[in-house]
Design a protein around this nucleic acid. Structure first.
Lengths: 198, 198
DNA sequence: CTGACTAATTAACAATGGTTAACGCGGTAT
DNA sequence: ATACCGCGTTAACCATTGTTAATTAGTCAG
C-alpha cells in the first residue's frame, strides 16, 4: 500500500518508527490500508488481536467491559497514533478489548505474521520489532504518570492542552471514562473551569 | 557471574526470560552480581540509567522528586522483579529516578552496552532484547489497569494479595505514595478494613 | 415536525481523599 | 535518663468524587 500515503506522512512515519525511507517503503509493503466509518468496530470478535493499526486520519476508542457489563474506555487516540492490543499481539492470547471508530477514519495495519515474515527475512527487522515494543512501553509509562501524579481536573486540563482534538472528537462519556471518573464529575470539572476562567 | 545463582532461580529465570538454559548461561556471563545494604542508592547520580537490575533477594523503591521537592514512589519491587529506568535505558536520556534499597539485598545487572555486544554477536539476542521490552510493557500496562480501574482501597487490597512481601518490607509512607494517596489516607483505609473484618 | 432515544447537565446526599495539626511510639544521640 | 526525630495514627475540617435521580439538550428516524 506504499503509494497511498503522502510524502509528508511518510517522512514523519520514518522519524517516528526510526526507519530510513527505503526501509519504511519495505515496511509499508506488508501494511494494509483500511477505511472505516463512524461507530464501526475495528477487527471485531473476541479473538487474538494479531495486528497493530496506525491512524492516518480519524479517532478511535479502545474499551472493554467490566464484570458488571460496564464499558471502560482504556485509550482514546487520533491521527498519528498506533493502536491495537499490544499485549494480545505479543502474547497471542485473546484480547479483552473492543476498538470503536469514533469518526470516519483511515488506517493502515500490519499483522504479526507479516511482521515475522520481515523478521525472518532479515535480522534488521528484529530491531524494528523491538522499537515497536519500546514505543508501546513509553506510551504506557506516560499514562501511568498521568494517573499517578495528577487529579482528574489536572488530567482533563492536560488532555485539553496535549490533545485538543480528542476532546473535540470524542463524546464526554468516553472522555470521563478515559480520565477515570464519572460523566457527572467531568461535567462538574468543566463547570468549575468555566467559572474560574472569567 | 553464572555460578552464583541457584539452579532453582536459574530455572525460573529461564522461563521468565524465555531463554533455554544454555542461552541463559550465556546471558548471565554479561551480568554483574551486586550486594547493597539497606538505604543505599542503586546507581546513584543524575545520569543515564544504562543498566537493568534483577532482584535476587531484597526490595527496592524507585522514586523521583517533584518540582516542589516532594518524593513520589513510582515503583516498589521485590524478589524476582527487574528494575531500572527502562525509558532511560532505551532512550539514553538522563533518568529522573532514584532507586533506593529498602532491605539488605542481592542483585545482578547488565548494561545496555553489554547487551548490545550480545546482539552484535548473534541475531538471536535481538529477539531477547525485544522480549525485555515486551516484559517492561506488560508491567506498565498492569500498573495502568490498577490505577484506572481501582480506587485506593482496592489498590491496597490488591497489593496485599498479590504482593504481601512488599507490604511487609516497605514503610507505609512509601506504600501510600505508590498507591497514589497520602499516608493519612492509607492509615484510614487500614483502619476501615480492620473494622470491617470483624 | 414530531417522538423517541441518548447524552449532558444539574442537584442533593453520602463516601472518600486531601490538608493541617496534634499525639504517641520507638529508636538514637547526647 | 532525656531530648529529639521520624513514623504512624488520629481528628477535624474542607474539597472533590461517587451515587442516584431528575431535568434539559441534542440527535436521529419516521
Amino acid at each position: 500500500m506504499s503509494s497511498s500515503l503522502s510524502p509528508v506522512l511518510k517522512k514523519s512515519l520514518s522519524i517516528q518508527l526510526g526507519l530510513p525511507m527505503d526501509r519504511l517503503e519495505e515496511f509499508l509493503c506488508i501494511c494494509v490500508f483500511e477505511k472505516l466509518g463512524k461507530n464501526q468496530l475495528v477487527y471485531p470478535g473476541k479473538r487474538c488481536f494479531d495486528r497493530l493499526y496506525f491512524i492516518v486520519d480519524g479517532a478511535v476508542r479502545t474499551f472493554y467491559y467490566t464484570d458488571m457489563g460496564e464499558e471502560i474506555s482504556y485509550l482514546l487516540q487520533v491521527n498519528g497514533d498506533f493502536f491495537g492490543d499490544y499485549e494480545s499481539f505479543i502474547t497471542g492470547q485473546k484480547s479483552r478489548f473492543t476498538i470503536q471508530v469514533m469518526v470516519d477514519s483511515e488506517f493502515f495495519y500490519f499483522t504479526k505474521s507479516s511482521l515475522l515474515t520481515l523478521v525472518n527475512r532479515e535480522a534488521f527487522w528484529l530491531g524494528f520489532k523491538s522499537r515497536i515494543a519500546d514505543l508501546a512501553f513509553l506510551d504506557a509509562k506516560e499514562r501511568i504518570n498521568e494517573l499517578l501524579f495528577y487529579n482528574p481536573e489536572k488530567r482533563y486540563l492536560n488532555l485539553l492542552t496535549k490533545n485538543p482534538e480528542i476532546v473535540q472528537k470524542i463524546p464526554q462519556k468516553y472522555l470521563s471514562s478515559y480520565l477515570g471518573i464519572t460523566p457527572q464529575s467531568l461535567s462538574r470539572i468543566r463547570k468549575r473551569l468555566a467559572a474560574g476562567a472569567d
